[in-house]
Design a binder for these strands. Structure first.
Lengths: 289, 289
DNA sequence: CGGGCTATTGATGTAACTCAATAAAGGTGG
DNA sequence: CCACCTTTATTGAGTTACATCAATAGCCCG
C-alpha cells in the first residue's frame, strides 16, 4: 500500500500514504457556466450561452492532494462539495495551514504568478471539484466582460480575506482567534445551507492550531473553556454554537499594541465632526475564563 | 491648519492631521506603458505603441493618505518613488500594518472586489505614484494579451506575498520575524539600486511591530540584541547589515508546533526515494542573546 | 528652547508554549 | 467481532517568550 512509485518530481513533497491525484471519471461529470457562477455567488453571465461551455468535474478522496508545491500551474479549481486545506511547507517540512476551502471556494490562484503552485491543497473529506483551465478562462473573459470582472473580483476577494487573516494573526489573542474561527465556520455552514448551530469540524486541532498560529493544546483548552462558560458545546469534532453573539464580540486585544496614539489621533480629528458617537467607553471584555 | 472641512463620508476615518489627497500636479507628470512595465519588472508590451498611452503621476507628501478604507475604488497605483504603509483599521481604531510598499509595488488591488478600498495607504515619505485607472486597464488588457497576463500575475504575486506573511506570523519567533524583515528590506533596497548593507528605516518601531505582530519594545530589544551580537548595527533608523547570512538563517521555530507528525510522515514517505539527504541533524539555533 | 514624538532599557507579569500522561476514537487485519 | 495500533483529543504542571508598565533620553520641528 505504500508502494506508490514516486513518480513525482518534487523534493520532500511526494505521494503520501494515500494515492496521488488520480482523477477518476465518474458521477456527475460536467457543469456549465451558470452553475459555476452560482457556486461563486455571482450573477449568471447573460451573454454566455450557458449550455455550450462545459467544465469537467474531478473527484478526490480524503487525503488526496489536489496539487503540490512547485507543480506546474494550468488550472483553477472550484469546490463543488467537500472540505480541504491548503498549506505552505517550510524548509523543515513543517506545514502551515493557509485556509480551509469548502463549497464555492476557488483554489489555485497562487499559481498564476509563477506558473507554479506555491501551496499545496489536500482533501479533508471526499471532494468534488470543478476544473477551470486558466487559459480557457482568460480567453473566454476577453469576450465576456462579466467573466473578466468575476475573475478579478474573486482574486481580489481572496486577497482581502488574507489581509483579514494577517490582521487577526497580528492583533488578536488566542481566545479571540478561536472564537472568530468558530463564527466564520458557522457562517460558512449557514451559507451552504447546513446548520450554523451544530456542525462537525473536518480538521484536527493541530490543523486549526496551525491555521490560527497556535498550538493544538491551546486550541483544545480554549474550546474546553468556551464549553465551560456555555458559549459552545464540544464533543470531539462536534461543535454546538450556544451563544453566537458572545463568540462574535469576544476579543481581548493585547491592548496598547497598536492603539494609543493612533486611536487618539483619530478621535481628536473627528471630535468636532462627530459629537462623541459610538465609542464604547470601556469595552466589553468578556474573556476571562 | 486643522480646519479641513471634513467633507468625508467615512466614519472614524477622515482627514488627519495632514491634509487629504489633494493631487497637486507638478514635476514629471506622465508615464507610458513601457515605463510602467519596467517598474513592475515585466517585459515591455510589444504590441502596444508605448508612446500613445500615458498614465498620470500624482505626488503625495509625507503623512498624506492615498486612499482610505471604504472609499470607492476606481484606480490602482504604482509606486514610482517614496515609501508608504498600508493598514487595516479595526473596530477600535487600531491600526494593523499590512505592508510597506515602495518603488515598483502595486497599490489598491484590495478595492477591486467590493469596489471599495478595504485598506488605507499612507505616505511615509514624499511619494510619486502613477495612476492606473482600473477600467482603462482592463479595457486595454482585452486587446493586449501581455497586459492581461501582467494584471493577473501581479495580483497573484500579491496573494503569494500575503501567504508568506501568514506563514511567518503563524510560525516564526519574534527574532526570526525581525531578522526576515531586515533581510527583505535589504533585498528590496538592493533591487532598487540602493545599498543593501546600509539603509534607513522609513517606519517607526511601532509600525514595524504592528507589521510583524509584535510590540515596539520587542522590536527595539531584538534590534539591540542583533546589534550586540554584531549581526547588524543600529542607530535610530539607520541599519547596517553586518552578517546577512546569519540573519537569513536565523530561525527559532517554536519547535513542535507544526512539526512532529507531518515532518516525520514526509520523511517516512521519502525515505527510500532520497537516502537521507540534507536533514540538518540538530539545526543551527543561533538565537540566544 | 521647550514639547511632542520616538527609541531604549529595566523590572515584572502572564498568555501561550512545552512536555508528559491518559483516554477516547478510528482503522486494520486476523 | 475483537485485539491491536495509530491518530486524535484532553488535561495538568512547569517554563518561557513576549507583553506590559514605567522611567529616561535623544530627535525633530516649530
Amino acid at each position: 500500500m505504500f508502494s506508490t512509485p514516486m513518480s513525482e518530481l518534487r523534493p520532500a513533497v511526494s505521494a503520501s500514504s494515500s494515492m496521488e491525484a488520480g482523477r477518476q471519471r465518474q458521477g456527475r461529470l460536467w457543469s456549465n457556466m451558470k452553475e459555476v457562477c452560482e457556486l461563486l455567488h455571482l450573477p449568471a453571465i447573460s451573454t454566455l450561452n450557458a449550455e455550450e461551455l462545459l467544465f469537467q468535474h474531478v473527484q478526490f478522496k480524503t487525503g488526496q492532494r489536489i496539487h503540490t508545491i512547485g507543480q506546474s500551474f494550468d488550472t483553477l479549481y472550484i469546490v463543488n462539495s467537500g472540505f480541504l486545506k491548503t498549506v505552505l511547507i517550510d524548509e523543515f517540512g513543517n506545514e502551515q495551514v493557509l485556509s480551509f476551502p469548502m463549497k464555492g471556494d476557488l483554489l489555485g490562484v497562487d499559481g498564476i504568478h509563477s506558473r507554479h503552485y506555491t501551496s499545496e491543497a489536500v482533501a479533508l473529506s471526499d471532494c468534488d471539484l470543478i476544473l477551470l483551465p486558466f487559459k480557457k478562462l482568460t480567453a473566454l473573459s476577453r469576450a465576456h466582460l462579466e467573466l473578466e470582472n468575476m475573475l478579478y473580483g474573486v482574486m481580489s476577494r481572496e486577497l482581502v480575506r488574507e489581509q483579514a487573516m494577517i490582521g487577526m494573526l497580528g492583533a488578536l489573542s488566542a481566545e479571540a482567534r478561536v472564537a472568530r474561527f468558530l463564527v466564520s465556520l458557522s457562517e460558512r455552514f449557514a451559507q451552504m445551507g447546513y446548520s450554523s448551530k451544530l456542525f462537525n469540524l473536518r480538521m484536527t486541532r493541530h490543523e486549526i492550531g496551525s491555521y490560527l498560529g497556535l498550538t493544538l493544546e491551546t486550541v483544545s483548552r480554549t474550546l474546553s473553556a468556551f464549553n465551560e462558560i456555555g458559549m459552545i458545546s464540544v464533543d470531539q469534532r462536534t461543535i454546538g454554537i450556544k451563544d453566537a453573539e458572545a463568540l462574535r464580540s469576544l476579543r481581548r486585544l493585547p491592548p496598547s499594541r497598536t492603539r494609543g496614539k493612533s486611536v487618539q489621533a483619530r478621535l481628536r480629528a473627528t471630535a468636532r465632526a462627530e459629537p462623541a458617537t459610538a465609542e464604547l467607553p470601556a469595552e466589553p471584555l468578556l474573556a476571562a475564563y
